[in-house]
Structures are given as C-alpha cells and as structure tokens.
Design a protein around this nucleic acid. Structure first.
Lengths: 339, 339
DNA sequence: CTGTTAGCGCATTCAG
DNA sequence: CTGAATGCGCTAACAG
C-alpha cells in the first residue's frame, strides 16, 4: 500500500517497476486496448507487488463520476431504515460504488444541509429513505443527479418512489385469518394519522368485503405500542367477547394483544388467532406463541432502490411515480398451532 | 449548480465571469495570498451566481486529504451498531467530514475487501464498529490512516479501542438492587462465551462481595433471548423460591424473566426486583412494569470515537489500549414501585 | 503493440 | 496585487 517513503503507490511507480510507459500500464490494468500478454503480466505483477490501487479521485476527475452515492435518511433510529440500508449497501457494495451515509434527524433544514454536502461531493446519485410511508416533500426536480425515494414516497409524482404495499399486506393477513376459519376479526392499529394505518385498514376491509365479512367492531387506533395493544385488547374482549381473530397494525401492538389475551385466559391461536405487521424478529419470534406477521421485504426494497439509482446513472429511464412493492406473510404459531 | 449546458460550474467559469485569472479566483475564494478587496468581492459574487462548489476530487488530488471517514461495521443489524453510528455521524456531520458506510456482514474476507475500498478512496480515518465486546482481530498497524475501534476492542493493545464498561455496569446494577433492600439476588445471562457475559458476572460478584453477599445459586447462562429468560426463571423460582432480585444479562432476557415471574404470581418489584441490561427502549419501556436497566451510552461512545479519529487526523496523539467508557443505570418500575 | 501528449479541476509556486 | 505555469494521478486520443 505504501512504499518506503510512506507514500501510496501510483500508476507511475507501477509503470516504472514494470519497465513500461504509464499509458501501457493503465491499459494493462484496465484491459483496454491491445497489450502483449507478457507485458500485461509484468504490469500486473508490479501492481500487486506495490499493492497498487488506482486513486479514485484522479479517475473520477476524468470520468466525471465519483462512484459514490448518497443515502439520505431521516431517522437512523428507525427500525425500517436498517434493512433498507443493508439492502442498498449490499447492492452497491457488490460493485465499485461506496455509500455516503447522512442522517437528517428528521429535520428539513438539516436535510438541505446534508443534500448540499452530498452534491458538493459530487455523488452520482441519491437514495432518500424516510421513516413512515406517508409522502414526504420532494427534494425537487432540479438536482444534477438521479434520486430515488425509499419507504417514504415523494409527494411529487415526477419522482420515483418505492414503498411497500401496505394495502396488499393487510389483505393477505386477513385472507390468512379467514383461511384459518376466522370470521369475527377485529383490527387494532396505531396512530390513524399515519398512511400506514389507513392503508392497512383499507386492505383489511378489501379482503373482508371480498369474503362477505365485516370488521368485528370499529377499528381501534391509538399508538404503535405494546401498551396500547394491551389496553385495546381488554376493551375489545369486553365489547366483543366472541371475536376469533385480531389483525394488528404492528408487531409491537400484537405483542400487547397476546399479553392481554393470555391474561383473559384466551388461548392463541385456538380461541383467537393474531397477526402482526412488520416481522420485527426480536418481537415476533420471542412471543408466546411466535407471531404470524407481514414482512415488507425491506432489504429487497433497499436493493431495488440501489439498482434503480444505478440504472439512472447509466442513463436508463427508471420511470416515475410511486411503486408499491410486494410484501409477504410469515406464518408462525399465533395463527396456526404447532403440532 | 449547473450552467445552461447542464455542466456544473468550475473555478474557470467563476474566474472568467469575474474577469480575473483562475489563480486569483482560487485565492479569493480560499482567503489565500493578497487579493484586492473589490476583486475578491467580484469573485465571490461570480461564485455564488454560478452556485460554484469546488470539486472535492480535484482538491483532494492536490491536498491528499479527502474529508471523508470510513465506518466499517461488522453487522448493521446489530442493535449496538446504530447508536454508535448515530453518534459518529453526529460528530462528523457537524463539520465538513462525510462518512462512508461499509458493512462487512461479520465476514473477515469481506472486511478486508471493504477496507481496501476505503483506503483506495483515501479516507482520512476509519472507525471499526463490532457487534460484541469481545476483542476482534486488529486491522494491523501498517495502515496509512488512523483507526479507532468502537464497541468491539482490537486484540492488539497498540490500537485504540473504546468499549463500554460492562463490569462497572453490572456493579451499579447490583448496588441498586442492594440499595432496594434485596439480599438474595440471582443472575440470568446469555451465552457465556461472550466477554459481555463474563464481565457482567464479574462486576456483579464485585458488588455483592463488597456488600458481604453472594449470588443466589449459580449464574444461569444460555442465550440472549426472551425464551431463555422465561425458562431460566421457572427453574430459578423452583430451586430458590426465596430470591428477591434478578439481575439479567440483557433486556431481552429480562422480558422473559418478567413474564415468568408474572406467571408464577410473583409481583415485580414487590416480591422480586428485576434489572435488565442495554436499555433497548422498545423492550424496556413496554414491559409490565417498565424495566430498570443499564444504558451503555453508545451514542456518546460513537461521538467519542469520531472525536478521536478527528484528533488523530490532526496529528494529535490519541493514545492506545482499550478504554472502558462509563455506563449509567436507568431506573424504572421493575425495581422501584410507581406511586 | 507501445509511448507521447493532452487534459480532468484545482492550489500553489514564482514572475511580472 | 495579479497571472502564467506546474503538477496531483489517471485515462483517452493519437502517433510511432
């Protein structure tokens, strides 16, 4: 990596060591042009002997590309950010692209700041990751690089946004409950101001309607917490003692639901089947019984977002509008009893 | 940002617009050398009119510094990675430094790969974040940039590592239980192969010994899960029905402990006080009762790691060896009853 | 097949 | 005070 002087090896060093010109060395290393086989080998040997790595700045200066992309998140804490980030990092890391991570902490001013920093670094593209599925303000159309929105869609239909299909997720959850023989299904969800809450309710009603059923009681909205899951279930079991299924707006809520069902002496899944949402493993696989839940395939979503940015950088038209990506149901013991 | 041709403005454009040479423009913008006040103003006006931002690649090519730092994590999923990452991003983001995120997925080969990528990008420094507090292989002493290890210390004492003080954490947890009047305290922890498990046990014994007490029964080790917390507690209450306090190796385990205590009709904290570890909020604040737990101040740790890298880049000697950073106890309802 | 030449955008000599 | 020239490390034309 460094010669005796502590300086990192340059193409010049490689060329000299191989006894060729700097241009030939460049071609040999990049497989460009025609280079004699043995010459190429000499260059490769010299390069590896010196642990030569091309300076991406010099390279980028020519190409006008930096081989970097910006990942602008609005909240690193978020449970949703991570799988997306991993997926993106995955897709990029495979190639020669590196990711600049910027956390705006959900602050619009700070986001502008970070955006400027990314642009001044000449990133080749940007992925914007939000923490909710509610539309967020667009970064605008005037940016010199392609932008893809992940999880939280942009409010401008000219942008490309990838977001999980909450409505379909709720549908498959309800269909599963119905296929388990449940007919009196209630819904306990989080803050009704969230698009996710509304979309999931809509999906649930879609599926119930298609089966000629209705929700047992009014949907119960409050907050995305275990506490609420517990409280809601207590109320629910009092008002509708005959319910045999509960579809929850999140795994956290579902955990609370399971707790209270247990306290009330209802067996899950025998008396009541419960479905969560998010497949937050630490919650879903540690409950009694383990939780059937909807997984939004977020890592996949992150990978796709990265792929779209790639494509856009390569000049491919990636389309626009909000695309709803498929989700999947993970079936565990809270809907189907273990043998 | 872009002129009519869609090209981003260069120093040349600024100079021409201001009617000066490119060298003068450079000096004016960077406050170097002597430039007449009105000339400087003309240049600044031109620059802002063109939204000029210096190309960091051209600049870095000259300076040898890039203003970027690499964050090499071994596992993005990890619950510990995040606060550290946030802290670091925080400390850097404040200045003119940006963070390259690399996830090695816990794979040594992949880590080498990422390391090369970071070095070839000429990062000015590197933070290595691990997912356990067990020592990890050093990246070596031959790197051309400073490296700081966070959470997982390096196994080479010549490296600088920052890791939470698990032993002290266990001590304050036990001291708190004792101060709550508990005398028969048991310990349920995770995988004994983890340094964290051993350090916490040692700290617990320190504090018990200092009070002339001993652990109630043998420490119980298995895995860091709710399931194990439940199973362990069942065994524990059978063998030692008189215990009045349980110190848990993690919040997950503590959740399981609370569950089983409840099943067995033991009131928390009246009959048994429970302390967790990690302050994983989603678990700790949603349990019944909420969980008293040890917080490792990870965000703080991340900030410090970033600061050390800064200092090292500036040529300050940052020392070496493993430094154990202070942790704190967060007291909630599982040890002190709510009024 | 190989080497020479000319920049990419910028900061820094050194002359004017 | 200002500007012309030099080079950071590399690639892409073109000559040889």
């Amino acid at each position: 990596m460094m010669d005796a002087g502590g300086r990192t090896a340059t193409l010049n060093d490689v060329a000299r060591r191989a006894g060729v010109s700097i241009a030939t060395a460049s071609k040999a290393l990049n497989g460009r042009g025609d280079v004699a086989a043995d010459t190429r080998q000499r260059v490769l040997d010299a390069a590896s002997a010196l642990s030569f790595t091309p300076n991406p700045m010099a390279r980028g200066l020519l190409a006008g590309r930096t081989g970097t992309v910006g990942l602008l998140t609005s909240d690193l804490e978020g449970r949703f950010m991570l799988p997306i980030l991993m997926g993106a990092e995955d897709a990029f890391g495979a190639g020669k692209v590196n990711v600049f991570l910027c956390d705006a902490r959900g602050d619009a001013i700070r986001e502008q700041h970070q955006l400027r920093a990314l642009l001044s670094r000449r990133v080749d593209g940007i992925i914007v990751v939000g923490r909710q599925t509610d539309p967020r303000p667009s970064l605008g159309q005037e940016l010199p690089v392609p932008v893809v929105y992940a999880y939280a869609p942009s409010d401008d239909p000219r942008d490309l946004s990838l977001t999980p299909d909450n409505r379909a997720g709720a549908r498959i959850a309800i269909e599963h409950l119905i296929s388990c023989g449940r007919r009196r299904i209630a819904h306990v969800s989080g803050d009704p101001a969230f698009a996710a809450a509304q979309d999931r309710l809509a999906g649930a009603r879609d599926a119930l309607g298609a089966a000629g059923l209705e929700l047992a009681g009014e949907p119960m909205f409050s907050e995305w917490s275990e506490h609420w899951g517990r409280d809601a279930t207590a109320t629910l079991l009092e008002r509708h003692p005959d319910i045999d299924g509960i579809f929850c707006g999140s795994d956290q809520i579902a955990r609370g639901v399971l707790d209270t069902a247990r306290d009330f002496g209802r067996r899950v899944p025998d008396d009541i089947a419960v479905v969560g949402y998010d497949n937050w493993e630490v919650l879903a696989t540690n409950s009694r019984p383990e939780l059937t839940t909807v997984d939004a395939n977020l890592q996949q979503l992150g990978r796709q977002a990265a792929q779209r940015v790639f494509d856009a950088i390569d000049g491919v038209d990636i389309g626009e509008g909000t695309q709803h990506l498929p989700v999947r149901l993970v079936i565990r013991g809270s809907t189907i009893a273990r043998r």
